[in-house]
Nucleic acid binder design. Structure first.
Length: 264
DNA sequence: GAATCATGAGTTCAGAGAAC
DNA sequence: GTTCTCTGAACTCATGATTC
């Protein structure tokens, strides 16, 4: 295994948090520009959003993706307290400021690919990484991630046993499934209604649930609170069904407010 | 008027299908 | 078989609408 493979098969490019958390959120890759200081050394321990991290990134609360992640987690907490109620997003800002991706928190954030990939093949990228043959071609870089990084993620999933994994970006749904050891085509589940309807894909494996959603934000993504609440309800339904299967040997049907149609 | 939230614009990339 | 065009998606940032 090369040093680059060790970099891929590590916690590199992971926002982190608490790996023992029930909920893992997995993005595709970092956004934004390439940081010249980025190194390719493996990260043996997952990071987290520490006070130092927040001081270094004073605008972290403006990151829309993580705002929506915080809202989703708040809605899930709300449903956990009372499954029949309308989930509340109240307090999501405080949650984001104090609890999101922290070491002893309720969430853990990963990325399928460790580097800010939009810059792969760019002049800026070549200036920094030209000496790495595996990084000169984006397709080869991603394929190497599938071969080396995904088995690492699969191992970590079986080690830490998260109950819910949310993959954001449905064009990469096969990659999310492969990365965490889920099989099959997934079950199509609509959330929202009318023009605002979005489609998620749900995979289940040994008490764990993978939900692949459209991206958090943007024109075609989960861009409203109603989407996040519907997603929280969808997740809660599958968690309850899984719990009932393990307890009673049969699934529980839908909970109020969750679309019951199974299109897949 | 300020804060918050939802949506759109611009950029980049990938994949599918048509045209050559 | 190759090239071109179109469409959808991911991402950041900006802007308009709404609420207080």
């Amino acid at each position: 295994m090369t040093n680059f493979d060790r970099f891929l098969a590590s916690w590199s490019g992971v926002d982190g948090g608490n790996p023992f958390a029930d909920v893992w959120i997995c993005g595709i890759e970092h956004g934004g520009s390439l940081e010249p200081a980025t190194n390719l050394d493996p990260e043996l321990e997952p990071a987290s959003w520490t006070d130092d991290f927040k001081k270094q990134h004073p605008k972290f609360q403006t990151w829309q993706y993580n705002q929506k992640a915080a809202k989703l987690l708040v809605a899930l907490n709300s449903l956990q307290r009372d499954l029949g109620q309308q989930p509340s997003l109240e307090g999501w800002k405080a949650y984001m400021a104090e609890k999101l991706y922290v070491r002893d928190g309720e969430s853990f954030k990963l990325n399928l690919f460790p580097l800010a990939s939009p810059k792969v093949d760019s002049a800026e990228w070549n200036l920094v990484y030209a000496q790495h043959p595996a990084l000169r071609d984006k397709g080869a870089y991603r394929e190497r991630c599938r071969q080396v990084r995904f088995p690492f993620f699969d191992d970590q999933r079986h080690r830490y046993k998260p109950k819910i994994i949310v993959g954001t970006g449905k064009t990469f749904r096969d990659d999310f499934a492969k990365a965490f050891g889920f099989h099959g085509p997934g079950e199509r589940r609509p959330i929202g209604a009318g023009q605002r309807q979005r489609e998620c894909f749900v995979y289940e494996d040994h008490g764990a649930t993978l939900v692949v959603t459209p991206f958090f934000g943007g024109r075609y993504g989960l861009n409203g609170d109603d989407h996040l609440i519907a997603l929280a309800r969808l997740i809660a339904e599958y968690r309850l069904a899984s719990l009932c299967r393990s307890t009673f040997g049969r699934p529980f049907r839908t909970i109020p407010g969750v679309a019951a149609s199974h299109a897949g």
